[in-house]
Design a protein around this nucleic acid. Sequence first.
DNA 1: ACAAAATAAATTGCATACAATTTAATTGTA
DNA 2: TACAATTAAATTGTATGCAATTTATTTTGT
Lengths: 149, 149
Amino acid sequence: MSKYDCLKLENQLCFPLYACAKAVTRHYKPLLDEFDLTYTQYITMMVMWEKKSASVKEIGECLYLDSGTLTPLINKLESKGYIEKHRSDDDARGVVVTITEAGKKLRDKMVKVPNAMGGCVALSEKEAKELYTLLYKILGHFDEIDSEV
Amino acid sequence: MSKYDCLKLENQLCFPLYACAKAVTRHYKPLLDEFDLTYTQYITMMVMWEKKSASVKEIGECLYLDSGTLTPLINKLESKGYIEKHRSDDDARGVVVTITEAGKKLRDKMVKVPNAMGGCVALSEKEAKELYTLLYKILGHFDEIDSEV
DNA sequence: ACAAAATAAATTGCATACAATTTAATTGTA
DNA sequence: TACAATTAAATTGTATGCAATTTATTTTGT
């Protein structure tokens, strides 16, 4: 019951969040290594599989990443042959990223990844849904705060 | 209802976890900038405030970090004057990290940080507790898996 | 129309993360 | 007790993250 209790690791919510996120991406690694993708590259491909085509800005909005992270990452995905980038015709400031045929084929190979990963997370369907809701509630609030600027 | 649904970003549990952890540490930044600490340095100080003295290995076990991350980080905290490191007398392989007086004083100054941060996370007491439980459940399961090796 | 403000990427710099390797020291064991 | 196996940090190398700056382009306000 000290005034310092609030500074104890075990009383933080941020710490298990931080540790858990790291643990998850760490456990993704062996699964993704087979495809020569990192976790960030993997979720970038998820955006591309859904959108087929998107600007760096749009990808960044989906993933909460900025061009400082995305530019080199997109270059790597391009060199692997999964996407292509070219200047936008409409707006020469923008870059349009497009998925390639190889990128589309990769989707078929990776369909089994989420399930393999799901096995590692020891939550019931109900718990997973709860966690999902709570996390998006926090994210939503941060989005509000950030847009208020 | 496609077989690719499992690869949609919105159907992932890992993604909000990843995004949320980043958002939290990002929102910690302005609070921690005042003290010239990064988030990782901050949680390392939390360990030191509780233990007063610990090996690099012990700190790593608390924070799920290895020496590759901790060695340079501990050097920085030492150069800031908050901790000291010296070889262990018992086992010359080990390094013992000890908190300094300046490090102890820092604790007083930072007592208000968790509360300031709590205001950013839009959860009720009950929701926060639920989230806490779920996150530690996942972490615990990963710990089990990892120790089985 | 045109200078100023805003925007999109890219670049730069710093601080993690973490796998893999190296170095030094300690333990276990034949 | 030699000596192989193990262990603790440090080192090396790659890949993020993100703030801040730069560059090129587009919008805006007059």
